[in-house]
Write a protein that binds this DNA or RNA. Structure first.
Length: 818
DNA sequence: GCGGACTGCTTACCT
DNA sequence: ACAGGTAAGCAGTCCGCG
């Protein structure tokens, strides 16, 4: 079987080149098609003398903004760059869609799906087992109309078809460094590559090592199968390239910006001809001539991925952090930062470990990550290289454009949408935001036993579905729809046509709720299939959670703020009505945020009544999401701790959990969590409260007596989100510390995490903050730490009715004592 | 010159 | 480069203070 994994423009044949993965030979094959020509559309007749034009024809498209057919000129040109240049032509449209994307959309190429070569054609190859499962799904949704049935079939086939076991290798290199605080520059590539390690899912672990003067081999690291030594660096690189060519997929961590880029420029510098280098270097990415390069750093940095698929388990996107969070393995910690000084043993071991964990990030949990990428490739209809690097908005744009093309709908321009649909009508609570968002109920502070959390399943996507929302249906052109308003906003919604977004997002949402969520928990399925279903479920979740937000984002090509605003408004309407109903049933609503409510020990029959009422009223499933033994609500919004009936501790928004909090306070917080985990009854809580008090008292004394073990335990860890000279308005503490580091020759760039301690002005020469690396014990401002300890723990001490000053420190006023 | 009240900036979080 | 809402701490500004 041939799986389509990539598509790109090939200038040599002025056509499209598809990369196909052959799961029998485990090699990439290429399919070239030069019959497809680039084109764009325009409403005005293009002048005759534009020399790139091959053909122009008048075609009919459906204008969804105005609900009528329009005639537009389809202008075919002799090569894709002419489409790029069409911005000179008045009213050129659909000219921003890349050539290879046009090919995929117009020819309906199913990315990531199985094909076969037959009679000189590339034909989709149906799979009987998958097709019968799809029929099973469809039989569950019989009551739906034709459009919806078709969408279900389309989505389901993308997610039900199996994926092959992709043969792949991971690569990591170590380069000689002159300055331990600086990363070698890949563009100049002046320093030699000391070692390259390749680890593969076909059982190879090979280290390519450059022989360095004065070093001897005394010990072979235990994580390699084969070590090849080279006296000449160019031979080393060529061997690495050969091995790379044996594998259709190459996995790196930051290979776009470092490993592959370095190898390419280093090879050129050593006189290796371009032809023999398998790498193509672009401005921001590195690709392979024959294979597919996946840069996991890019993939794990995709915000939606991080939050929805991996539940923000990793706090930054470094290999060490991601690997520790997902597979429980990290980089090898070493004292030595000078690669050149490391023994062969240490160098190889370090490098191979990186290659190993990089590979394992794609293999753990039955190839979860690679399967996630394949499913997103299928849903978005983008090549692997794009889907693994670009953000969720480009995935959504991609399948939206595909659906427009398939249905012969003219794709509206952002200007048009803005002009026809108008602006927002609500005022945001936060200054500078475009419209009003969700409701957060003020929580009732205190420790509450027996609390249920109820929530709406995928509220915002459900609103798309139920209320028929999309750019075409909001403020539609029909007079008779103008009365169809919901809630507080003046926008009306079309009653005549179904919005494309409503159909696409709605069907995806139903498929997730009624099929994949159930299948992912099905005990009777074998493990592999179960994980596959859970990955399908997760990939839908990622797309859906972003689907509302993109319509409120200027960067999105179908940006339509009234749609986003209306969805938020309907959500407020739904949750407020639900809270009122719950209260009218006598329930005690303690808290609520956006799509959920916390209820104190509701009687079963009242609960059932509320659930039924919401289903009837809004057509959206409202169900018990969590049951807490007890919840400590701090009185602040988005800020609580709860212990579920299964004994899991949920911490939301508390400072003790935040990544900038010093480790010493964090670990005290985690100890507190352990104590709270065991509490079953209000009586036990009284005992635990005493334990917590003495625990915090211990930390307090550690500060007071300056008895902490390491300075690192005191460090605040804050990210500089931009380059240092871009802080124009204020200079926050972490930036001050960052500047001190920079002055010492450290690399500080956007995204660097700064570890600093708070210092005493009088002791530290007028400085209130210092990088932990440069700070001395006696400079620490212990009072600042005690203040921070206080405010961190007050978030749970208050609901537990413990006073920091009186019960922990044992005085009436903290200030007096200080 | 220094503090308190205030606003705004910045980061990390929640849904 | 999916949205808006929230907590927290600090930077910077203004004003009063004989």
């Amino acid at each position: 079987m041939l799986y389509v994994v990539s598509a790109s423009y090939d200038p040599d044949v002025n056509g499209i080149s598809l990369k196909l993965y052959n799961d029998e030979t485990e090699k990439i094959e290429v399919w070239v098609d030069s019959s497809f020509k680039a084109y764009f559309l325009t409403k005005m007749k293009p002048s005759l003398n534009w020399k790139s034009i091959v053909k122009k024809e008048l075609v009919t498209k459906y204008d969804a903004l105005r609900d009528k057919d329009v005639k537009v000129w389809k202008v075919t040109v002799n090569n894709p760059s002419a489409v790029k240049n069409s911005h000179n032509i008045n009213d050129a449209r659909e000219n921003h869609i890349k050539f290879f994307q046009c090919y995929i959309y117009d020819k309906d190429i199913k990315m990531g799906m199985p094909y076969l070569r037959r009679n000189g054609n590339l034909e989709f190859q149906p799979n009987q087992e998958s097709e019968s499962r799809i029929q099973e799904i469809l039989s569950q949704f019989k009551e739906l109309d034709k459009d919806e049935q078709d969408m279900f079939e389309k989505w389901a086939s993308l997610l039900e078809y199996p994926a092959p076991d992709f043969k792949r290798a991971s690569l990591d290199i170590e380069v000689m460094n002159k300055d331990e605080n600086k990363v070698p520059n890949p563009e100049t590539a002046i320093l030699p590559v000391l070692t390259a390690c390749i680890s593969t899912n076909r059982g190879e672990r090979i280290a390519y090592v450059l022989i360095q003067e004065g070093k001897t081999v005394n010990k072979i690291p235990d994580n390699v199968d084969k070590i090849i030594f080279f006296t000449e660096e160019d031979k080393l690189l060529l061997s690495v390239f050969n091995k790379m060519n044996e594998y259709p997929f190459l996995i790196t961590f930051n290979g776009d910006d470092f490993d592959l880029r370095y190898l390419y420029y280093r090879a050129l510098r050593l006189g290796i001809p371009e032809l023999k280098i398998p790498i193509i270097v672009r401005e921001r990415i590195c690709m392979l001539k024959r294979g597919i390069h996946i840069d996991l750093y890019k993939f794990f940095s995709i915000k939606a991925m991080k939050i929805y698929a991996f539940k923000a388990k990793y706090k930054d996107e470094k290999l060490d952090t991601v690997a520790k969070a997902l597979i429980g393995k990290g980089k090898i910690k070493g004292e030595e930062k000078w690669m050149a000084k490391m023994s062969y043993h240490d160098l190889i071991k370090y490098c191979m470990n990186d290659a190993d964990i990089t590979l394992e990030l794609t293999t753990y949990n039955n190839d979860l990550v690679i399967n996630l990428i394949i499913m997103l490739e299928r849903i978005s209809r983008l090549p692997i290289e794009n889907v693994s690097r670009k953000s969720v908005s480009s995935w959504i744009r991609s399948f939206m454009v595909y659906e427009h093309r398939q249905r012969n709908i003219l794709i509206p321009t952002p200007e048009e949408i803005k002009a026809v649909k108008g602006q927002t009508a609500s005022t945001a609570i936060i200054k500078g935001k475009k419209y009003k968002g969700a409701i957060v109920v003020i929580p009732i502070s205190g420790t509450h036993f027996k609390v249920l959390v109820l929530d709406f399943a995928s509220l915002y996507p459900s609103i798309f579905k139920v209320y028929n929302l999309g750019y075409s249906t909001i403020n539609c052109p029909h007079e008779e729809c103008k009365s169809n308003t919901i809630g507080e906003l003046p926008h009306w919604i079309c009653k005549k046509n179904r919005a494309l977004e409503s159909l696409l997002i709605g069907s995806l949402r139903d498929l997730r709720v009624f099929w994949y969520k159930k299948k992912a928990k099905d005990k009777f399925l074998d493990k592999k299939l179960k994980t596959w279903y859970s990955v399908a479920e997760q990939s839908i979740k990622v797309i859906m959670n972003a689907s509302y937000g993109v319509f409120g984002s200027e960067k999105f090509s179908l940006y339509c703020p009234p749609v986003a605003e209306e969805i938020a408004a309907i959500a407020r309407y739904i949750i407020s009505k639900t809270i009122k109903k719950a209260q009218s049933l006598g329930m005690n609503v303690l808290y609520g945020d956006t799509d959920s409510i916390f209820v104190k020990d509701p009687p079963k029959e009242k609960l059932d009544e509320l659930v039924k009422w919401t289903q009837d009223e809004f057509g959206i499933e409202f169900e018990v999401d969590k049951a807490y033994k007890y919840v400590c609500l701090s009185g602040r919004k988005k800020n609580y701790l709860g212990v579920t009936t299964r004994g899991e501790v949920d911490v939301k928004g508390l400072t003790g959990k935040k990544k900038h909090t010093p480790p010493i306070i964090k670990s005290a917080f985690n100890e507190t969590k352990k104590l709270l985990k065991e509490v079953e009854t209000p009586e036990q809580m009284e005992v635990t409260k005493k334990k917590i008090s003495s625990l915090i008292k211990g930390v307090y004394k550690t500060f007071k007596n300056r008895e902490w073990e390491n300075m690192e335990d005191l460090s605040f860890n804050v990210t500089v989100t931009r380059e240092l000279d871009e802080y124009k308005k204020t200079t926050p503490q972490h930036v001050k510390a960052a500047k001190m580091l920079q002055a010492q020759g450290y690399d500080v760039e956007a995204g660097t995490n700064i570890s600093f301690v708070k210092t005493n002005k009088k002791v530290s020469g007028g400085v209130t903050v210092k990088p932990v690396k440069l700070a001395k014990r006696e400079e620490v401002d212990v009072n600042k730490y005690i203040e921070f300890l206080k405010s961190t723990f007050e978030q749970i001490l208050e609901p537990l009715d413990i006073s920091f000053s009186e019960d922990i420190i044992g005085i009436r006023s903290l200030k007096d004592w200080l």
